[in-house]
């Protein structure tokens, strides 16, 4: 048993009839990290999260939280967890204060924290309105406030930014970072890959229920040999063929569109490549480097899997 692991799944499998939703999945989330859980729609992310929380019984395999085996009635483990499911909706006829009071009581936490939680999530002006009248985004914010009750040491968030506008996506992102800085371990699934890139220490990619990769984004880039892109703007229409640029050492791929040249190249030779393009008589007006993104990793991993 590795004590560094806050969440550990061992050979987790879940079958729904003939459908294998989770397939022999072994992942681990380390203490104090932000762990991104990625996969295309229907990959088995939500099922895995629900198994971790003891909401779904695995067909095979086990889940350990803080080194202790998880089962649905394990009260002590659950005190350590804050969970936000995807697309949650609460009790229509209760106000947000009554809703959070209810969850405080369930976790045996002092209800005096409720006004602060509502304020942190920007819901203080709606404290006495029925939740049934809330928009999807407001319910999501209430869900996030709920997850923070009792300052849990582990956060499991399923698509936390789902249904939120840009302003609140930023708030949630900052909140996740803040909770992590205060010592919490965060595992979250997301389809917004930029969000994952901005936050995560490590990511895990699953598809069709099984593990494709689990590592830092940097290591995955290296392993997959994903190279940066140079976007070069030239004055007027580029009077050069892609063949001329491909000849340059370290260049992998070239695309030319009007006055924009996109070059996929070796990261260590970016400056030399710019110089050599200039030497070929091209007037460079501007250029931009795009480092490999989690999106590239994600796409490449899924492509390789096929």
């Amino acid at each position: 048993m590795n004590k560094e692991y806050v969440i550990e799944t061992r050979d987790l499998t879940k079958r729904f009839g003939d459908v294998v939703a989770v397939d022999n999945l072994s992942i681990n989330v380390r203490k104090g990290e932000i762990y991104g859980f990625l996969g295309p729609n229907g990959a088995g992310k939500t099922t895995t999260i629900k198994i971790i929380l003891g909401l779904i019984y695995p067909t095979e395999g086990e889940v350990y939280i803080n080194g202790e085996k998880m089962h649905p009635d394990n009260i002590e483990i659950k005190k350590e967890i804050g969970f936000l499911p995807e697309r949650v909706s609460f009790y229509r006829n209760l106000t947000p204060v009554q809703t959070l009071n209810f969850f405080c009581e369930l976790k045996e936490v002092d209800k005096s924290i409720v006004p602060r939680l509502l304020k942190e999530m920007g819901l203080e002006n709606y404290a006495n309105r029925k939740v049934g009248t809330f928009s999807k985004g407001m319910i999501q914010l209430l869900g996030f406030a709920q997850a923070m009750i009792g300052s849990p040491s582990i956060y499991i968030l399923d698509e936390p930014s789902s249904g939120l506008d840009a302003r609140w996506v930023k708030t949630i992102r900052e909140k996740i970072r803040y909770l992590n800085e205060k010592g919490a371990t965060v595992m979250f699934s997301s389809h917004i890959l930029s969000e994952v890139q901005a936050l995560c220490d490590r990511v895990c990619v699953i598809d069709k229920g099984h593990l494709i990769a689990e590592d830092t984004i940097e290591n995955l880039n290296k392993k997959l040999n994903i190279k940066p892109k140079l976007i070069i703007k030239v004055g007027g229409k580029a009077k050069i063929s892609s063949k001329d640029i491909e000849e340059i050492e370290g260049v992998d791929n070239v695309e030319i569109k009007d006055n924009e040249i996109t070059v996929v190249c070796d990261g260590k030779r970016k400056l030399q490549i710019i110089e050599e393009i200039k030497d070929k008589g091209i007037a460079i007006e501007d250029f931009q480097t795009i480092e490999p993104s989690v999106e590239d990793v994600f796409v490449k991993l899924l492509e390789e899997e096929k």
Binding site: L53, P72, E76, V88, K107, E108, I156
Partner: peptide, 15 residues
């Protein structure tokens, strides 16, 4: 269906 029960059952409460 609306996810509220999964939140409740993630709390320290028995089924």
């Amino acid at each position: 269906e609306n996810g509220a029960l999964s939140v409740v059952l993630s709390y320290p409460v028995k089924r």
